[in-house]
Design a protein around this nucleic acid. Structure first.
Length: 312
DNA sequence: TCCGAAGTAAGCGCACCTGT
DNA sequence: ACAGGTGCGCTTACTTCGGA
């Protein structure tokens, strides 16, 4: 167990590295590397409530802020930088109802209804970019919580085929976004209602790439350490690849990349550095968008304490 | 037609539950 | 004990109502 006072002393004695330059100011206690200090201009933090404190490594903070700021793709150790068009997720689709709403509008059933849902996070079942509904909802004739009759159908209007984790256990999670062939609601995934299938597929690719993961982790709300949640308001503002701003050929290629990788099994996040499926996804993305190799980024993300549930 | 009151919808967080 | 999930009270924001 680290002594809090001595850690504080070590922090006070260390001169932080500058965000805009390179390098890391290591904080050491008894010769152990316990963290890194980085100073960030206040102007960089405007509107990004957790920016700067989400990652233990200064280089990930740099990558995240540069990406979130203006779509600059900087991978530690890579000589060239790339650029991607980003926009808030809410501009591309509508995010569905909070799980609390389902309790008021439906009851769950195993018998088939017209209202399928994706239930749960079981990492043995959520291994790839595609998933199939595994439970059904039945609208309550008399909704709970004082909602009016027909509340279930009302909620159903917000069902979607792109699913983004509403909360997840970073240590065991494999994919943070998936796509279903049919519209669904879910208890632990946010459904995102998007009209164009190519957009859905491209976003599923983006979100699971190293860059998507970096932005999502930067927006996360931590509760029990590696057990993190995504708030609806944060997800709406989450910068994602603006699929309207890339060329039709690029969009088509992203969609094809989704299909190519769709059935592959992803490793758990701490093993992402050497995960074959994730590497294919990243390599495909960088080839299509002309970006630097994301390998270094994937390695840093894989070793983040919040992902591994261990120290640096 | 103004404005506070009342009604309604939605999202968050906490306590607690459960299967391995 | 841990990974993962449930139930639901509560707050907040928006909408509608109704009386002067």
């Amino acid at each position: 167990m680290l002594d809090a006072h001595r850690t504080a002393q070590a922090i006070a004695d260390t001169t932080p590295a500058n965000l805009e330059s390179a390098g890391a100011a290591l904080v050491e206690v008894d010769g152990r590397h316990v963290g890194e200090l980085v100073s960030i201009p206040e102007s960089k933090l405007a509107g990004k409530k957790w920016a700067g404190v989400q990652f233990a490594r200064a280089d990930l903070t740099r990558s995240a802020l540069r990406l979130l700021d203006d779509g600059e793709v900087w991978v530690p150790g890579e000589a060239t930088v790339g650029r991607v068009p980003l926009c808030p997720l809410a501009e591309l689709g509508e995010i569905g109802p909070d799980r609390r709403r389902l309790v008021d509008g439906f009851e769950r059933t195993t018998s088939q209804t017209a209202y399928p849902m994706v239930e749960g996070h079981d990492t043995e079942q959520r291994k790839s970019l595609v998933c199939i509904p595994d439970a059904y909802l039945s609208p309550l004739v008399t909704p709970k919580g004082g909602q009016r009759p027909g509340y279930g159908e009302h909620l159903w209007q917000q069902a979607g085929r792109l699913l983004v984790a509403e909360r997840l256990w970073l240590e065991t999670n494999r994919v943070i976004a998936m796509r279903t062939h049919t519209r669904v609601l879910s208890n632990v995934w946010w459904p995102v209602k998007i009209e164009e299938i190519a957009h859905e597929k491209a976003l599923a690719v983006w979100l699971n790439s190293g860059l998507g993961l970096l932005t999502l982790l930067a927006q996360r709300t931590s509760t029990r350490g590696g057990w993190v949640g995504m708030k609806k308001a944060d997800l709406e503002q989450l910068p994602v690849l603006d699929v309207r701003a890339i060329t039709p050929q690029q969009l088509q290629a992203m969609s094809q990349l989704f299909d190519d990788v769709a059935e592959e099994e992803f490793e758990r996040l701490p093993a992402m550095a050497d995960c074959v499926a994730r590497r294919r996804l990243d390599d495909g993305l960088t080839a299509i968008l002309g970006l630097p190799d994301l390998d270094g980024l994937r390695r840093l993300l894989a070793s983040e304490p919040v992902v591994t549930n261990r120290g640096l």
